Simulated scan of single mutants.
Amino acid sequence: MKATDRLAGIRCSSATFLYMGGMGEMRAVRTIAIGTVVATLMLTTMATQAEVLMGINYHATLGDIKRLYPNATYEKLKPAWLTEEDAFIKISGVGLGGTLRVAFTDLRPAAKRLLAKEKDSSAYKKIAAQKDDDALTVEWVRLTYTAPVTLDTFKKRYGSPGKCEHDESFAFECEWPNRALTASMSADGKIIGSVATGFTLSEKQMGYTLKGEKIPPWLSPARNNLSEEDLMKKEYDTALESAIHDLERAGIDLNGPINDQFDKSIRFFAQEAIKQGLVDKVGDIAASRSALQNAKAQMLQQYGK
């Protein structure tokens, strides 16, 4: 297997999953780039073909955004959910019409772990040595408006929302699933304070096309003949690998009875997640991630050194 294939793609969208064991591959390595002039031209001609917020496309780098908004202020945030393979940056400035918060994927930690096993891999070395501007790639975007926007304004552009309901924190939200948009609403459901996009399949494909890169198999129309269950299992495997890495780093040896306990703990918290109304879908395995986080916390409290 090629070195670049070991960081396998895990960004997906839609279905129902649950707890599935196993350790899998990591996310895809981007290897081909095109000139800035060509990329800018493609952005100009293709940006209107998909719903993106403030021109920020899926798979764009932090450097791409800085070139788009060179006078903006960039601030790294550290929300509770942040892992070593994520970054979350607040972008503000005159003319943006609001404040952007962008979630990024960072492949460097995975590349460094794989380098420990394959020390001669030039591909891993290149990724591990990247700076933030090249290493961080866009996963999702949220825009908080400076001035309130009415739901009627959104309806004129996107149509009626697919559903409106309270989330787990009882904040009121409306979703446009076919646009991958979620809006945070006022209590009366008339005003939109912020909107987030997780990107549709076509937008994700476009993100690679804009950078002159080959669309990875997991984003191809045929999805490389993988079922949605297989795609979610790949995503779960990545989350599990990260949890195991954190536990081992804390001095916990996941062998024998301790591994069995960890497995039972994951299953228990998976059922608890379901009772709380969390579900798994391609691109957002919320129930499984909650189960893994709670199981990891329990193990750290009991066995962490």
Rank of each mutant, 00 (worst) to 15 (best):
171 A>G: 10
299 M>H: 04
93 G>E: 05
219 L>C: 06
187 A>P: 01
70 P>K: 06
64 D>S: 07
5 D>C: 11
19 Y>G: 02
200 T>G: 05
62 L>A: 04
22 G>W: 06
60 A>M: 15
132 D>K: 04
24 G>M: 05
220 S>G: 09
78 K>N: 15
114 L>S: 10
150 T>C: 01
17 F>R: 08
200 T>V: 08
48 T>V: 11
185 M>V: 08
202 S>P: 05
207 G>A: 09
32 I>P: 09
255 N>I: 13
48 T>G: 11
174 C>M: 02
74 Y>E: 02
57 N>Q: 14
297 A>L: 07
196 A>F: 04
181 L>F: 08
132 D>N: 08
48 T>P: 07
133 D>F: 04
271 Q>I: 11
97 G>V: 10
269 F>H: 06
91 I>K: 01
166 H>G: 07
260 D>E: 13
58 Y>N: 07
230 D>Y: 09
155 K>Q: 07
282 V>E: 08
5 D>K: 14
279 V>S: 11
74 Y>A: 03
294 N>W: 12
220 S>V: 05
104 F>T: 03
174 C>N: 02
262 F>K: 04
201 L>A: 15
168 E>C: 07
275 K>H: 08
185 M>W: 03
90 K>D: 09
195 V>P: 03
176 W>Y: 03
26 M>P: 07
21 G>E: 15
75 E>I: 11
127 I>V: 08
104 F>R: 00
6 R>H: 12
129 A>L: 05
64 D>M: 09
291 A>G: 04
180 A>G: 01
215 I>G: 04
4 T>F: 13
40 T>L: 13
259 N>S: 12
284 D>H: 10
212 G>F: 04
140 W>Y: 12
89 I>G: 02
4 T>C: 11
191 I>N: 01
80 A>G: 06
112 K>L: 08
167 D>E: 03
195 V>A: 02
